[in-house]
Design a protein around this nucleic acid. Structure first.
Lengths: 208, 208
DNA sequence: GATATGTCCAGACAGTGTGTATGGTCCTTG
DNA sequence: CAAGGACCATACACACTGTCTGGACATATC
């Protein structure tokens, strides 16, 4: 908890990989989350899947929540640079919006297990909560910047609270992507998902 | 599990209450959920709070999830009859929308603990999942009926998927009410919450 | 009033999970 | 060869769940 632990450097089989076990734990968990939900996943399950001892696990991570946090950070940073062109946004607004929504769907499809896990768990773990709220805040902030640089959207929004509108669109996305990943109709149909989310953005920002 | 148990009828202290213990369990849990979150709540906590033995608890409920399910049913049916005038909707559409959103906020304020609990838990329990999806479906269906009987909304929606739009508004509400109850800004400010939700409904249905 | 019936409690139990601690093995480096 | 770091197997204390005893006590029946 309080003492910073050193990352192991010298590995058994030569100079190959430092912290290889750590990596094994991460990818085993990522893999397990493809099929099982996070809270029915025990540390023992991860241990056997990653072929790692209990002691080693708790050397690298303080809990399984910390593993999830790391996986989420990976997935989200990977997604942020994917959504970067969206933030710049020089093209046609509506097309850019749809492209951004589609990117989000791709990100969620690629990391469904991890992202479903945190959406289901951030309510009951302080670290995960802080992490997820921060991510949603980053997305919201990006949306705010985008709106502020868009005269037409600004005009349509009038004196409405820009950040609140941006936040609600962010959270609408969070919920709808989750439902899609969970197979809840009608959002399990990716075309419906993208259409309805794009429609929400354009309706709220431009009145269609 | 499979055998249906009979509800106890003859009580110790006269003809007072049948299934009094059951009631005690329900209200103790409801009370505990006001301060603690559902998954850190153990059955033992409920036992001591309700002054009920472990055996009695498992006589009336198969699990603590079942207790939550019952509490949710209570809260939601109570909320459905509150939202009934909204479904009828003869008044000015925008005002009716705002009134409905405000009713939702009131319902969530009155039952924050229980509703937060199920929102956090329906992902990890089959019964709770079925219950919550059914409730969201009921709300969605009511919204669909309301939209179908509103020529202006129908005209504005064009060939969009009415049920998908209604569902996304329902789920947006679910998420935003939850965030408000969880104290996440900017939705912790009830005025912001109501404004942004009302705005979403009117924007999506009428283009403002 | 004796006997059953049903409600309830106290407590023990096995099973499973978490996080920590102990001791030992194997490899690398000085 | 000796020292130390990386790792493993194992066992532990603790908490929680759901089941199962035995017994206390009130009511109903004879």
């Amino acid at each position: 908890m309080s003492s910073k632990r050193t990352v192991p450097s010298a590995r058994r089989s030569g100079a190959a990989a430092s912290a290889e076990l750590r990596e094994r734990i991460l990818s085993a968990t990522r893999e397990l989350l493809r099929e099982r939900c996070f809270d029915t996943l025990s540390v023992s399950d991860i241990l056997t899947a990653a072929k790692v001892s209990r002691a080693s696990f708790y050397f690298y991570f303080p809990s399984k929540q910390a593993v999830l946090a790391e996986l989420v950070r990976e997935a989200v940073t990977q997604g942020q640079q994917a959504a970067e062109p969206w933030t710049g946004g020089r093209q046609d607004p509506a097309a850019a919006l749809r492209a951004g929504v589609t990117d989000g769907a791709r990100l969620w499809r690629a990391n469904a297990g991890v992202l479903m896990a945190i959406v289901e768990s951030w309510g009951s773990d302080d670290d995960l909560r802080a992490l997820w709220l921060e991510q949603m805040d980053l997305f919201t902030e990006a949306a705010v910047a985008r709106i502020r640089s868009d005269p037409e959207a600004l005009r349509h929004l009038g004196d409405a609270d820009v950040r609140a509108v941006a936040a609600s669109l962010t959270w609408l996305g969070e919920r709808l992507y989750y439902l899609a990943a969970a197979g809840v109709p009608p959002f399990d149909d990716e075309q419906v998902l993208i259409d309805v989310l794009t429609n929400a953005w354009t309706s709220l920002l431009y009145g269609r």
